Amino acid sequence: MKKIVYGLFFGDSITYGEYDGVFGGWVDILKRYALQKFHEGNGDELILFNLGIGGETTEGLLKRMPTELGARNSADGNLVFIGYGANDLAIKEGIQVVKPETFKSNIIKAVQHAKQFSKDIYLVSILPVSKKIDGVVVSSGKLRTNEEVVAYNQILKDIAVDHSLMYIDFYAAILEDKESLLSADGVHPNEKGYGMMAEIAIPIIEKYL
């Protein structure tokens, strides 16, 4: 009998797919891919939920995560993807939105929530920012630096090791060509960048199809 597995993607606007008017972002590409494979009659059904909210930090994640997990819990199993940090590390009016130690604590709490529903938990790296906005206050009032991106990604990597989780390193994949893979705002990928992220993630979801 075929299984129905759920994939839950928690994150901010980069999970949501903001600024991609072509594909709708990397998670939506994966959704279409999984559906196509199911219609071709290949293996189990994998239903993916894009739970990305623009501007969200790990503080917002913790408020909604237990409810979201409970509402989308497949008896056949769940995959959980957690992609946060781009908003947490931002500095607004001279104050870091979510400080590194709080970010670490919030991600660990999120992982503990996820472990009640899933054995397959993936932490998603934060993307580099374009050099034109590195250390610059943008129109949203936020300032981001690549130095902070590296520091917060290290927190995610350490948690992945300590809790035996998988880490998806989009940062390393995009770094070299970031200026051509990021959109005009210097934070979100463009359709080419999102497409590259999806290519990296497809082999991960393949295992469940």
Results as ranks from 00 to 15, higher is better:
51 L>H: 09
52 G>D: 06
53 I>P: 00
53 I>H: 03
54 G>F: 00
55 G>M: 06
55 G>T: 09
56 E>S: 13
56 E>M: 03
57 T>Q: 10
57 T>L: 03
58 T>G: 08
58 T>S: 12
59 E>Y: 13
61 L>Y: 07
61 L>N: 11
62 L>A: 10
62 L>C: 11
63 K>R: 15
64 R>T: 07
67 T>E: 15
67 T>A: 14
67 T>R: 14
68 E>L: 15
68 E>P: 00
69 L>Y: 02
69 L>W: 04
70 G>Y: 09
71 A>P: 00
71 A>D: 14
71 A>V: 05
71 A>Q: 14
72 R>P: 02
72 R>N: 14
72 R>E: 04
73 N>K: 11
74 S>N: 06
74 S>E: 08
78 N>I: 02
79 L>D: 12
79 L>A: 08
82 I>W: 06
84 Y>V: 01
86 A>Y: 01
86 A>R: 02
88 D>I: 00
88 D>A: 04
89 L>C: 03
90 A>E: 02
90 A>Q: 03
90 A>R: 02
91 I>G: 04
91 I>R: 10
91 I>H: 04
92 K>I: 13
92 K>G: 01
93 E>F: 11
93 E>H: 12
93 E>T: 05
93 E>P: 00
94 G>S: 09
95 I>Y: 10
98 V>E: 03
99 K>R: 14
100 P>K: 08
101 E>D: 14
101 E>S: 13
103 F>Y: 14
103 F>G: 03
104 K>L: 11
104 K>Y: 06
104 K>P: 01
106 N>E: 09
106 N>G: 07
106 N>Q: 09
107 I>E: 04
107 I>D: 05
109 K>R: 14
109 K>E: 14
109 K>D: 12
113 H>T: 00
114 A>W: 04
115 K>G: 00
115 K>Y: 01
116 Q>Y: 00
117 F>V: 03
117 F>A: 07
118 S>M: 02
118 S>Y: 06
119 K>P: 00
120 D>N: 15
121 I>Y: 04
122 Y>D: 07
122 Y>V: 11
124 V>C: 11
125 S>N: 05
126 I>T: 05
127 L>P: 10
127 L>H: 10
132 K>C: 00
132 K>R: 13
133 I>S: 09
134 D>C: 07
135 G>V: 10
135 G>K: 03
135 G>T: 09
135 G>F: 06
136 V>K: 14
136 V>N: 07
137 V>D: 04
137 V>F: 03
139 S>I: 10
139 S>D: 13
139 S>M: 03
140 S>M: 06
140 S>D: 15
141 G>V: 11
141 G>C: 10
142 K>G: 00
143 L>I: 02
143 L>N: 04
143 L>W: 01
145 T>E: 02
146 N>W: 00
146 N>M: 01
146 N>C: 04
146 N>G: 09
147 E>H: 09
148 E>C: 03
149 V>A: 08
149 V>S: 02
150 V>E: 13
151 A>T: 06
153 N>R: 06
154 Q>K: 15
155 I>D: 01
156 L>T: 03
157 K>R: 15
157 K>A: 11
157 K>I: 12
157 K>E: 13
158 D>P: 00
159 I>S: 07
161 V>K: 15
161 V>N: 14
161 V>E: 15
162 D>V: 05
162 D>E: 15
163 H>W: 12
